[in-house]
């Protein structure tokens, strides 16, 4: 087994595009769940909104890619209103139900053949992100190596822009959460009725939190499809939402940095595990093939199985994240 190679892979992944995309989406979820207590189980829908915004601007409306960013934000806003307006007056479960239902519906809708002229249906959209890469100060096709990190020029550009976006998002969240607005939001998370009794319009606050979180996730979706250079409906599998949840809970909801930390840990683990499994010595490999039906196909399923297992264990034993204090957990009386 080539440990050096695996180390390089893991380190590169730890600051790579996927970590950024999921960190951004988790920052959005942190606003929604970590601070406002909203059960958004359809974060991937917001990512799709952003992604299809940039894709459809180019493919359907024939306008500039840059306008597409605006279109994506508009889509995310519309989605937040559609999901939030009917449910946020009601018990928390209803938002959960509607959002989990919506993300799969969105996927089915964009891949509907009737939409092939607008969304490219099941084929999706390609060739839309050129203007982004035209601005790349690095050589798109060259490889760049520094320390254990190894990126293609185009990815390096995505990573650079991505981390700037993450920094902006973190700064915004930090400022919001230290302001009276954030205080009201946290109060709503702790007890909505108490906040209402004290004159806070909890409905508006929750809508705002859902919207902010959704907008940040839509930016994550844009970045993701820009990096992949394709908008594909099946990228937005509902299970992505729960990867984001796992990441957020891993880092500890309600803390500014946790989405970034969670995303790094999560992807390092996944990349490490998958690389180890793929490089198993032939003997071990064939044993696993015959006993637990290991195959190349199945290795790619491991991340989902781990997400499931991880969510169960985290939710059961460490809902405040792996760094969360036991004390704080004891206060969690929701």
């Amino acid at each position: 087994m080539d440990w050096g190679f695996i180390f390089e892979r893991v380190m590169t992944a730890a600051i790579g595009p996927e970590v950024i995309v999921f960190a951004l989406a988790a920052i959005g979820l942190n606003v929604q769940f970590g601070y406002a207590g909203l059960l958004n189980f359809g974060q991937v829908g917001f990512m799709a909104a952003g992604a299809y915004g940039v894709g459809m601007a180019v493919y359907w409306l024939n306008i500039s890619f840059w306008w597409g960013i605006g279109l994506g934000l508009v889509y995310a806003t519309v989605l937040a209103m559609l999901l939030g307006v009917p449910t946020l007056r009601l018990r928390a479960d209803y938002l959960a139900i509607v959002t989990i239902a919506s993300s799969e519906t969105i996927r089915l809708f964009v891949r509907w053949r009737g939409n092939s002229g607008r969304t490219g249906a099941s084929e999706g959209i390609g060739e839309f992100a050129r203007p982004f890469y035209d601005l790349n100060p690095f050589d798109n096709a060259a490889r760049y190596q520094f320390g254990p990190f190894n990126f293609l020029g185009r990815d390096l550009w995505v990573v650079l822009v991505g981390w700037i976006l993450v920094a902006i998002a973190l700064l915004l969240v930090w400022q919001w959460m230290r302001s009276p607005w954030g205080r009201a939001l946290k109060a709503i998370r702790e007890d909505e009725d108490a906040a209402r009794a004290l004159g806070k319009n909890s409905y508006v606050y929750k809508l705002q939190a859902l919207l902010i979180g959704g907008l940040i996730a839509s930016v994550a979706g844009m970045l993701q499809v820009i990096q992949k250079a394709a908008v594909q409906p099946d990228t937005f599998n509902p299970v992505i939402t729960f990867m984001i949840w796992t990441i957020l809970i891993l880092g500890g909801p309600g803390r500014v940095w946790s989405p970034v930390v969670g995303s790094m840990i999560y992807w390092s683990l996944i990349v490490f595990l998958e690389n180890v499994l793929r490089q198993l010595p032939p003997g071990t490999r064939s044993t696993l093939e015959s006993t637990i039906k290991l195959s190349d196909f199945n290795i790619s399923q491991f991340r989902f199985i781990l997400v499931g297992l991880g969510l169960i264990l985290l939710a059961r034993y460490r809902p405040q994240g792996i760094f969360g204090s036991r004390e704080e957990m004891a206060l969690d009386d929701r």
């Binding site: 059960l39 949840w245 399923q301 199985i305 169960i312």
Partner: peptide, 22 residues
């Protein structure tokens, strides 16, 4: 908390679904 239990059901759902796919 009920909320954490709800997350557990989601974890369980994903775990079962992908084990079945496996």
């Amino acid at each position: 908390a009920l909320l954490s239990q709800m997350l557990m059901t989601i974890g369980l759902s994903i775990l079962m679904r992908y084990l079945m796919l496996y």
